[in-house]
Design a binder for these strands. Structure first.
Lengths: 212, 212
DNA sequence: GTAGCAAGCAAGTACCTGCTTGCACGCATC
DNA sequence: GATGCGTGCAAGCAGGTACTTGCTTGCTAC
């Protein structure tokens, strides 16, 4: 393994666990099984090293994509949500550390925020396609619904370990359950005749939306 | 202002901004306008001080309650969600700091997790009541739906500042939009449902025989 | 008054932090 | 063999860290 990568992965690991201040150069060097001086010779400073480590980690976020043209929304969204959640759960510590450092070290945050942004764009495009093909109610605020779905995955990934009582359903089925409920929410209202999309999508909201 | 409270509030503030390691006793003392030694004389150690500060802050979380008996779910949930979100947004930095420290300092996490737990219990009870009175579909997984709603508020409060592009709708209307979409999701599927309540009624009880 | 107590103040201890310096060793290339 | 080059190692610097000690000051109660 290249010494550079060894250091970067060690830095990401230590930073995840201890945050920026706790990620001492001595600790990173020890974890990478490398002399501390090598860190400075290779990356210049602790800040540059950790920034680079986070950027690499964020760039490696290459998970399941949503298709350009929705075929089976329940299956596709379930898989996407599950992959997304698994990825966030795995990188939970790093994400939280970045969030905690966001005000003190804005540069770090930029490096990290990219992943979420990309996922959000992808979901947004998918939902737009869903709506334009009549599989999503035009009365549902698209961006609100989308950010809700993102938040759901985010909340599960962050909170499952911390507040287990709030997430009683097992990891394996959570994404499916979330997706099903989400699809109920955005499904077009059946006007008398229940045009049930795939069995689960007959949600009817009696809430009048005349208030824009 | 009591010197004790002055120190506690300063500690919470500094801890929010800089995390545990960054919250030096010197900085806290300076922020509280108190001699550093007084910190140790009053609380014994930095750890004890910060733990106490977090506990106090979490205990002060006394926001809007959900009624025992749902009357107007859309209004009640909107208000509750808005209050909850505002509270989390205000305490965002502290929450994130606690989350980042959860593995290194589990004691701190326990002090902080209480607030979320209480809110969750309250929502769960409300949803149960909603379901038992026929205003929530029995096919919807109650805990999944509840944790979704919690996650939505959490995600908005945490992400709005960090990834603005994901939360384009203004703070004032976000809670209403979330609630409306959520209610669409959990509303009983109409078998040709009737709505007989006043105009803005959210989820309508079909418990009365499905006439019409 | 004076005794007790809470708080401030200055200094110090032992350790940790990022980062630097100087030097030695192994290894590939010419 | 000579020349770099990348790396390891030991030591150190200047500053920061939690926490302690010994002392002074001001306020309140008897």
């Amino acid at each position: 393994m290249e010494i550079r990568e060894k250091i970067l992965s060690a830095a990401a690991r230590v930073y995840s666990q201890h945050g920026f201040r706790g990620a001492t150069t001595r600790l990173i060097a020890q974890e990478a099984d490398v002399n501390e001086v090598t860190l400075f010779r290779t990356f210049g400073s602790k800040e540059a090293l950790i920034e680079e480590a986070i950027r690499c980690h964020a760039a490696s976020a290459d998970f399941a994509r949503l298709p350009d043209e929705p075929q089976d929304p329940e299956r596709e969204l379930t898989e996407w949500c599950a992959a997304h959640m698994a990825h966030m759960r795995e990188g939970r510590a790093l994400i939280v550390s970045c969030m905690a450092d966001v005000e003190e070290r804005p540069d770090i945050a930029c490096s990290a925020g990219g992943g979420a942004g990309r996922a959000w764009q992808e979901l947004e495009r998918y939902l737009e396609r869903l709506r334009s093909t009549g599989r999503m109610d035009v009365d549902v605020h698209l961006k609100a619904a989308g950010s809700m779905f993102m938040s759901i995955a985010f909340g599960d990934a962050m909170g499952r370990e911390m507040i287990p009582s709030m997430f009683p359903q097992p990891v394996e089925t959570a994404a499916r359950e979330y997706t099903r409920i989400f699809l109920r929410a955005i499904a077009p209202r059946s006007n008398g005749a229940g045009r049930t999309q795939d069995g689960n999508a007959a949600a009817v909201s009696p809430s009048t939306d005349d208030r824009s």
